[in-house]
Every structure is written in structure tokens, then in C-alpha cells.
Design a protein around this nucleic acid. Structure first.
Ligand SMILES: [Mn+2]
Ligand SMILES: [Mn+2]
Ligand SMILES: [Mn+2]
Ligand SMILES: [Mn+2]
Lengths: 252, 252
DNA sequence: TCTCCTTGTTAGAAGCGTCTAACTTTATAG
DNA sequence: CTATAAAGTTAGACGCTTCTAACAAGGAGA
């Protein structure tokens, strides 16, 4: 509405890969996008510019890519379509992982909102329905494998009825990655990524502030500036501005 | 193997439309292809050249298009994928005709041989299995419609077992269109299409040999030349060469 | 601080599929 | 047989996606 027609299949795929990279690797770099999609780096540059123009990613040359709020929504939608198709292919058609993945990623671009929801409902139904359950789909697979003409309907009513509470809706549980600046005194966290560049990056790396290191927040000054932390036995004072670029994962 | 990599989605769609036009209208003309695919005539010309280069159609400028043996096979394959997907969408997901058609035609290009067969087996299974039959899928539709949490499993074993012989595999029954030259004396047929051009076409049209007219073969001379027919009350003698270009549908 | 390797960008090209505009061929109706 | 309409083709263009080749930036180690 504000801008930008629907995405092309190609751009959807770029966005999807960026989404996964951020989830998996904590950052999306052009090289990785290129590798995933098996295209050359220069093609990625073009695509990134297109996605940025549509306000789906934050992109400036030489720096890594993040998703805008809009981009996040669109990416989640694409992934949903992808996953839904893939689940149908693997659990119902018993297609192997690789082909399911492959076909899903080609077809996802043509799966409407409505059909996605219907397909999800269908997959749910297969899992939930107490009469046919997983068992039913297994019968189908046997029917495919052997030449058995139809199913051997004897054990029917005595099927598990308590499969209802086992319905495995994937809950996505977002990777909890925060900026150090957002922590409260007393909290413990593991450093995941330092997004600083140049001089300051080198300085804090030298002081032991590296990915994987565990820190504890000691004190936070009134307006959040500075933040005192304990790391590798030392005490360290970091300015708020700088602590925003240190990404951590909270530890209980 | 002999030539030509896999077709692009676009070319598959052109081929598919040509196939349907020949079945439905007895000939495929560029204009109709353009209308079906909602593209301009000039785009069709380009596509036809591409398909001809791949030896899937017989094409020469200004004349109508036919499928080669190869093209027929490929087209049938495309249609099979299309129909399979569409059937899944309509009968299982209960998607409306138009959207099913639309999505099927976009996704068909990414459905492998293997997956098509699996999907066909799945649709068969749903129809055949004596335990769940059509009823099962109807339950699914009710489950979608109302908020009913699962199905009401009471009438189970006593389901129709004789649905096996009602399995509705579409048998395709090819439209029987023959050349007049292939008929035996005594046979009756309706004229479907006259593929002659120019002078001769005008002449026989004037004599009442027009699409829709019904004729009876009276005599066929020793080597098939000439063929005597009765049409609109008149008798007519047509040379064998010329009767090859008069397409008819046999009437019992 | 300097050097070199990796990562990223730019420029220019190509293939595909489509379009518009102008032209040619074929069919049809007097 | 001729005039006109319809169908088909050609030429030139554009957008999208990708590529290759050459160049630029950034970072890690000497
Ligand atoms: Mn995809
Ligand atoms: Mn995908
Ligand atoms: Mn299609
Ligand atoms: Mn189709």
C-alpha cells in the first residue's frame, strides 16, 4: 500500500535467505547469501538494493543486512508458506527431505494466503483426528509401498484419543538476542556478536570482550551510562552507546 | 536427450495451451493462444519459434500449429501435473475452482515426476480406502467450517466398502477426429474442420462441404481415389489427396 | 603501520519474456 | 476481383535476473 508491488519469486528467495541467516548466524552477509542461493556476489548486491528500495531490509554498502519491521513480516510469511508445503510433502507424500525442500521453495511463491491456511488446517486435521491419526497416514504409506489394495480396517475405534494434546505446532521460539545496553544489574549473559567496527572493536577484543565470553552486569549508572560489567575476572566500564553494539544471549 | 534442455515455465504454459486448443477447437491459432495466456500476439510468435526449435510443435509462419509426437508427450505430462495439483486443491483443500486452476498452473512447473505420482497415489487412496472414503474428507471440511474440534467417530466400520469400483480415474478419451480419407464406405460423419486453403477451400465450401455438415461415404475406388460421398442430398466425388484435409467426426 | 586476502561493489553484457508500433499476409464479403 | 478487416510477423525496446571482469574496502597478521 505505501509502496512496492508484490515481490518477485527471486526477491522472496533473497529475503527468505536473509531471514534464515540472521536467525542462524546472527548476521547476514552478502557472501553467505550468495552461497546459499548459488549465485554470484554481484547478483546479491543487485537484489539487496531492490529489497532496500522496497524498505524490506536495511542496507548500506559494505555493512551487513538487517530486516526492517516490514521485512520481518514478509519474511515470516514466506517461511510459513515454505514450511507448510514442505511439511505436506514430507509427512503426507513421504517425499525425501531434499526434494521436499527444493519443491517447497519453488512452489511457495504461488501459494496464496488462503491456500496456506487451508493446507495448515489439513495437516492439523491429519494429526488431530482421533480416528485416523498418524496411523492413517502410515497406512497410506504402506499402501504405496506394498501392492496392498486397500487398508486392513480392524483396529479402528480403539485408537488413541489422547493425541489431541500432542499436536506439534512449531512455536518458533525466537532466538533471544539482546543488546548489552538492555540488561539489568545482576544479569548474566554470553556474548554472541560484536557489531562494532575498527578501532573500538579491536580495543574491546583485546580486553577479552569476544564472542563466547560470559559476562555479568554489575552496575548501571542512572541514565544507563556507563555500564559496569565483570568479564573473565576483570571489571570493565562501557559507555551506553558502545554497549548497544554488543549483542548477548541472556543466561539464567 | 536428442536435444533441448527442460522447458521454461513460460514455454510449458504455451505448450499446454496449444494442447488444449487442439483438443477443444481442433486447431491452435496464435490469436487464441495469446488470448488464453493474456499476452500479445507478438509474444506468441516468439514462443512458437522457441517451441519449434525444440521440435515440440510444427510451426511455419501464418499457418496453424500442431504438436509433434514429442510435443504431445510433453504436453500430456504438463497437463497431468496441472490436473493432479488442481484435483488436490479442489477435492482436498476445497479451494474454489478458479484459484485452484490458477495456483495449479503456477506450481505445475515445479512438480517432479516422482511427486506427481505420489500425489496421484494419495488422491486415489483418499477415494479408495474403504474406511475413510469420501466421508473422511467431508469430515475434514466440516472440521474446517464449524469450530468442531475433531470428528464424531461412531459410524466407522459400516462404511461403504464398495467404493472401490467407483474410483473415478479420468480416462481422457481422445476426441475422435479423422481425415475423411480414412473412412470406409457406409460410414457417416460430421465435418469438423477443413484444413484446405485458398481456391479449393472456397470451391468445396460452395458445394456445401462446411463444418457441421453431415456426410455419408458411398464408394471408395480401388486405390482410394476418388471418394464418393453424399452430403446435403447431393453426391460428390473428391480426390483422395483432397479428402485428407477434411477432418470429420464419425457418427454411429 | 604495511600488506595481502577476503568480501563487496561497479560496469557492462546476455538471456528470457514481454510489450508497442508498424508492416505483411490471409480471409471474407461485396 | 477487389477492398477491408483480422491475424500474424518484425523490429526495437524494457525490466528482471544473472553473469564476468575489474576494482575498492576492510580486517588480520607481520
Ligand atoms: Mn523460494
Ligand atoms: Mn523457500
Ligand atoms: Mn503453468
Ligand atoms: Mn497449467
Amino acid at each position: 500500500m505505501t509502496a512496492s508491488m508484490a515481490l518477485t519469486s527471486s526477491l522472496e528467495d533473497y529475503l527468505e535467505v536473509i531471514y534464515h541467516l540472521i536467525r542462524r548466524e546472527h548476521e547476514a552477509r552478502a557472501k553467505q547469501v550468495a552461497d546459499e542461493l548459488k549465485v554470484k556476489k554481484s547478483s546479491v548486491t543487485v537484489a539487496l538494493r531492490a529489497l532496500a528500495k522496497k524498505k524490506l531490509i536495511n542496507y548500506s554498502p559494505y555493512s551487513d543486512v538487517t530486516l526492517t519491521a516490514q521485512g520481518e513480516l514478509v519474511a515470516e510469511d514466506i517461511v510459513r508458506r515454505h514450511e507448510t508445503l514442505k511439511e505436506f510433502f514430507t509427512t503426507v507424500l513421504a517425499v525425501d527431505e531434499e526434494q521436499a525442500e527444493d519443491s517447497a521453495c519453488k512452489m511457495e511463491h504461488a501459494l496464496s494466503k488462503d491456500m496456506t491456511e487451508r493446507l495448515i488446517r489439513f495437516l492439523e486435521f491429519i494429526n488431530i483426528c482421533p480416528r485416523h491419526g498418524t496411523d492413517w497416514i502410515e497406512k497410506y504409506h504402506r499402501y504405496c509401498g506394498g501392492k496392498q489394495a486397500a487398508c486392513d480396517c480392524v483396529d479402528c475405534m480403539d485408537q488413541t484419543k489422547n493425541k489431541l494434546d500432542a499436536l506439534p505446532r512449531v512455536k518458533e521460539e525466537k532466538e533471544s538476542m539482546n543488546a548489552l545496553s538492555s540488561l539489568e544489574p545482576g544479569q548474566k549473559a554470553e556474548i554472541v556478536k560484536i557489531t562494532h567496527k575498527g578501532f573500538f572493536r579491536r580495543r574491546i577484543l583485546e580486553m577479552g570482550v569476544t564472542a563466547g565470553a560470559v559476562l555479568t552486569v554489575e552496575r548501571v549508572a542512572p541514565l544507563g551510562d556507563p555500564v559496569d560489567i565483570k568479564i573473565r575476572g576483570y571489571h570493565l566500564s562501557i559507555r551506553k552507546e558502545e554497549s548497544k553494539n554488543i549483542m548477548v544471549k541472556i543466561i539464567q
